[in-house]
Write a protein that binds this DNA or RNA. Structure first.
Lengths: 166, 166
DNA sequence: ATATAATGTTAGGTATGCCTTACTTTTATA
DNA sequence: TATAAAAGTAAGGCATACCTAACATTATAT
């Protein structure tokens, strides 16, 4: 999904965690990878060997782990997709933080590059275009919770928009 | 992901295909499931046994396959998530049909129910709110392709909006 | 400096989910 | 109705990816 299908969703998660650990601790250690992925220590070794064989990490038994240039590039891309999707869920759909985080964790492996770029642009568009913007998104939640989907507030809203643009 | 995590992404795909085949042919047959999932005939049997054991399909060797009530409920939910995501990709992000289809196929297993409902509402909101609407979405693509993301056309756009609301 | 704790690896087991090949059942046709 | 084709199943194999328990290495603390 990242470049071709060289990496399973699982291995993508490894890379994402290793990047995070590198940023915090300079290097990653198996124990912490296990903790972050919520799997057992013994399960990590296999993943690390696979990533090493594919050239994404520098790995020697009993030593620390770092990303190769290729690994870093891919890891950053995954983290980017994660951020964009979480942003959309949080700021546009206004999903709660925990759900947004969990869903972003899964969707990041499923979305294609074109859609991610378009999504980035769309979020920007919403908050840039004078016809939309922050208050427009705020009204969205109100629209959602209104059973009748009434348009009774529309005139008021448009009046406010008009005067704000004068 | 559908109800709990009783079903893998894979088995969810089986259900989705079986629903589609039921709608077309009244029943599903292993050969056609294999064709739709692009796997070999021999691979299907295992999936069918798993779905049968979990109570999603009515399955007897050498016979046709139908969804149970539970299976139909879940299958329809998956198909719904698929439609909503594809709709968003097509109509909002304006991704090409083929990519939208493929990406929806993957994302349908990753998204949560809350986000799907919010997404449904959001798509509706865009095409209902007088501040947004069809021409607003059309302008989005233009915004995307503009390198500078300039706001030079904004005044013109707002004028048109104003007069359309008089 | 050495015992102990923490960390890492190995080996064997389980489950999913695909493959292929060979065999069985059903369907169609001659 | 017999036989060939099509559809379905079974068995054995492979890859992923997790588990646990036992063993190895490294780090810590006395």
């Amino acid at each position: 999904m990242s470049t071709q299908q060289d990496l399973s969703d699982n291995l993508e998660n490894y890379l994402e965690v290793i990047l995070k650990l590198e940023e915090t601790n300079k290097v990653a250690r198996a124990k912490e990878i296990a903790d972050h992925l919520e799997i057992q220590r013994g399960s990590v070794t296999g993943g690390l060997k696979a990533l090493s064989e594919k050239g994404y990490i520098n790995y020697k038994p009993y030593s620390y782990i770092t990303l190769t240039a290729k690994g870093k590039r891919v890891a950053k891309d995954i983290a980017y997709r994660h951020r964009v999707i979480k942003d959309f869920l949080l700021k546009v759909l206004q999903i709660d933080a925990e759900t947004a985080e969990e869903t972003a964790c899964r969707m990041e492996h499923a979305i294609d590059s074109e859609s991610i770029e378009r999504l980035v642009c769309f979020i920007e568009y919403i908050f840039t275009c004078p016809r939309a913007g922050k208050d427009w998104i705020q009204s969205f939640l109100n629209y959602c919770s209104t059973d009748k989907r009434s348009r009774s507030n529309c005139d008021l809203c448009i009046d406010k928009l008009k005067s704000s643009l004068r």
